[in-house]
Each structure stands twice: as structure tokens, then as C-alpha cells.
């Protein structure tokens, strides 16, 4: 078995190459933290928010590209840091708009998304068209993450997990029943602000794995699958994390073996798991229905 494992070209390459080890470690961290946050996003029926923030991050990436390549602000080092800042700004704008349109809170999403897309279009054009680096950010660049970025992702993951452990009760209560959370004296606005901020940071760091266009799938698809098989809240979140990690490892392995783009392969692994659950559940229900009919006749 061990000989088989080491003879696998992916395992061999993983042992030999730092960049693959960094990619796997980054993928595992993001695969852990995204469904964790995604679960709370799904409960609150805010699945669209991750997509909105990733599109607003794209504005940060394009402005970053313009500043670095056209104006020569090389001290910015990486557009991804600007994407992170824009994701946070986007989250704040969403929160302000959600407060402003109390009865039409979902309006905030298309406004922020449009703003992000328009700014991206403008600055991509000012930079002389879409660069290869920016194109890579659209679909993910996990194989090129450097040590600095791995450190950022590690710190973010640790902080997010710590915050969720400390404020677990409050986060669960606010997500499931905001009105009752207020009655319990929980500072709902303060926690919403904190969770939106966490979400913004997680979205922006996830850009490195699957890119702007696919980032929301990392947060939502594993949770969507886990919801169908989970028995409790903690069980569902754990299953979502498991699905996500399987997709990351499976996606990296397949993309290496088949020479597919990594981000897209990870997302397609997630989708395959979701579809498999749907099909298995369908046949289980069919079998149960038949068994019930047999016992009644």
C-alpha cells in the first residue's frame, strides 16, 4: 500500500515540490474555514453575499494591477492585499445598505456587485486590458501562493476559528433567530458587523484557491450537500468541512494527474459530491417508499 502511494506521481511530486506542499496546506486551511463560515451564511439565507464580495474584490485586484503596473506603486507587492481591503469595504457598504433598505435588504447585493464589476471594467481598461495575473485570479492561483500568503491564511484561519469558538452561542442564536437573540440581550448589530468582516476576509483569501468567479461555491456547495445528510448543527458543519477537504485534496490530485486547472477541478469535485448525495438520497427514499408499500399491503 505504502509502495503504491509513493509510486503515485502526485504523491511523488508533493514530496519533491515546496509549491505543491504550500498549495495543499493552503487548500486544506481554506477548505476548513470556508464551509465553517458558509454554514452561517446559508442559515441566514445570504448565499449571494460571497459572490457579491468576490466581485467587489475583483475591483481591488484591478485597481491594484493599475496602481502597480501603470503608476508603478510596486510597494503594494500583491494585488491580493488590495482585494482583501476591497472585500472589507464591500462588506461595510452591504451592511450600510441593508440598514438603509430595511424591508428590501437583498437590494444591497446587486448594488455592490454592480459597483465592483463596473470598477473592475474601468481599471482593467485603464491598465491596457486583462493581464495574465488578473486572469489567474478569476479562476484561482493556488499553485503559486508564496510563504507570506500561507502565513496570512494561517493567521486568518486561527482567528476565525477562535472567534467562532468564543462566540459560538451568540452566532448560532443570531443566525437561527435574530429576534430572539435581541431579546436575550445579544448585541446583534455588533455581531453582524463582526461576521460580515470575517466573511469579507475569508472571501478575499479564498480568491487564491478558486478565484473570483468560483469563490462562493467553496462556501455554499459543501454546506448544501451536508444539509441533506446532517443530523444536527455541529454534525452538519463537520460533514460540510469533510466534503470540502475531500474536494480540495481530490481536486489538487486530479488537476495534477489530468493537467486541469486546480480551482475549477476543486469546485467540480464539490459539485460531484453534491450530485452524488442527491442521487443516493433519491434512491434511498425510493427504496423506503417501496418498503413502506410492501409492509402496508
Amino acid at each position: 500500500m505504502d509502495i503504491l502511494a509513493v509510486s503515485d506521481p502526485f504523491i511523488k511530486a508533493l514530496i519533491a515540490n515546496d509549491f505543491l506542499q504550500r498549495a495543499l496546506f493552503t487548500g486544506l486551511l481554506i477548505g476548513f474555514v470556508t464551509p465553517l463560515i458558509g454554514s452561517f451564511v446559508v442559515i441566514k439565507r445570504l448565499s449571494f453575499i460571497a459572490d457579491t464580495l468576490s466581485h467587489f474584490s475583483l475591483a481591488g485586484l484591478s485597481i491594484g494591477t493599475y496602481l502597480i503596473t501603470v503608476l508603478g506603486f510596486v510597494w503594494i507587492a500583491d494585488e491580493l492585499y488590495l482585494a482583501m481591503i476591497f472585500s472589507v469595504i464591500g462588506a461595510f457598504i452591504i451592511e450600510i445598505l441593508r440598514g438603509y433598505y430595511q424591508n428590501y435588504k437583498e437590494i444591497s447585493m446587486p448594488i455592490v456587485m454592480s459597483m465592483g464589476t463596473a470598477l473592475s471594467g474601468l481599471f482593467i481598461s485603464l491598465s491596457g486590458g486583462i493581464s495574465l495575473k488578473l486572469y489567474n485570479y478569476l479562476f484561482g492561483t493556488i499553485l503559486t501562493v508564496d510563504d507570506g500568503f500561507v502565513r496570512v491564511i494561517t493567521v486568518v484561519t486561527v482567528v476565525v476559528v477562535l472567534l467562532l469558538v468564543i462566540f459560538y452561542k451568540q452566532m448560532v442564536m443570531i443566525s437561527f433567530d435574530e429576534t430572539y437573540a435581541k431579546l436575550l440581550g445579544i448585541k446583534v448589530r455588533r455581531f453582524q458587523f463582526m461576521s460580515t468582516l470575517i466573511l469579507a476576509v475569508v472571501v478575499s483569501i479564498s480568491l487564491a484557491t478558486v478565484g473570483v468567479l468560483l469563490v462562493s461555491s467553496l462556501m455554499i456547495i459543501p454546506v448544501a450537500g451536508a444539509m441533506k445528510v446532517g443530523k444536527s448543527f455541529k454534525n452538519t458543519v463537520s460533514i460540510a468541512i469533510l466534503f470540502s477537504e475531500i474536494s480540495v485534496v481530490g481536486g489538487l490530485w486530479l488537476s495534477y494527474e489530468l493537467d486541469f486547472p486546480t480551482g475549477a477541478t476543486i469546485v467540480l469535485c464539490n459539485v460531484t459530491i453534491l450530485l452524488s448525495i442527491g442521487i443516493i438520497k433519491y434512491f434511498i427514499n425510493l427504496y423506503r417508499l417501496k418498503s413502506d408499500k410492501m409492509t402496508t399491503t
Binding site: 446559508v42 442559515i43 441566514k44 439565507r45 442564536m173 430572539y180 436575550l184 440581550g185 444536527s232
Partner: peptide
Amino acid sequence: DDFNYEFPITVNEILSASRY
């Protein structure tokens, strides 16, 4: 209506999150 009860959560988990 205010409770998002389509996501799996057990009775114990609800009660423990409400208990201060």
C-alpha cells in the same frame, strides 16, 4: 417565521444556545 429551521439543528443545540 423568524426561525430559520430548515438547516439541521437539534432541540438540545437550540436550548443550549439560548441558555445564559
